[in-house]
Amino acid sequence: MEFEFTLNGEKRRVSTDARSPNTDVTIDGTTYEVDWSRIREGVISLILDGRSHTVHVARKDGGVSVQVEGYQYSLETGSSDDDSAVAAGAGAGDGGSIKAPMPGNVVKVMVEEGDEVTAGQSIVVVEAMKMENEVRSSVDGTVKKVSVAAGDSVGTSEVMVEIEPAE
């Protein structure tokens, strides 16, 4: 099986047959001989060169979160296998959409349709967990559509404002 992960903005190719308890795993041309065991869902034990590591893996939108040796990684997936769960729509890259970063309540909408905005400008203030968070535009452009008003509840990644990026 082949997997393609994006880690810190870099594409990494990982292939493995994952069949026997000792298997080869190849990362971008480097091959490791891995003694592995699936302890339960999301928990993988690895022994590499005699060193034991436990890797924790959990699904998230567009990929997986992984924790190992106290470090946490976010891996975006786009599998080369035909696996819809793995092939996710991460990194849609539409910088013009102002999305809610988390579920919360809209405190303030700072733009109106037709407004010119610049990258870095605050567009919406969302309150969650007793804290106000400003959501900013990542592009220069014109406000095409405002879909929320103060007092509305929003869910993660819900589009609140659409911005037509400047040419």
Binding site: V14, R38, V64, V68, S79
Partner: peptide, 26 residues
């Protein structure tokens, strides 16, 4: 090294999930 461990663990975990290409370990 830890990045590689994360990538190996992620690949093996995804490979063993049910429905992921029948690669469930014996």
């Amino acid at each position: 090294e830890t990045e590689h461990l994360a990538l190996i663990g992620a690949a093996l975990s995804l490979a063993t999930e049910s429905g992921a290409g029948g690669a469930v370990r014996e």
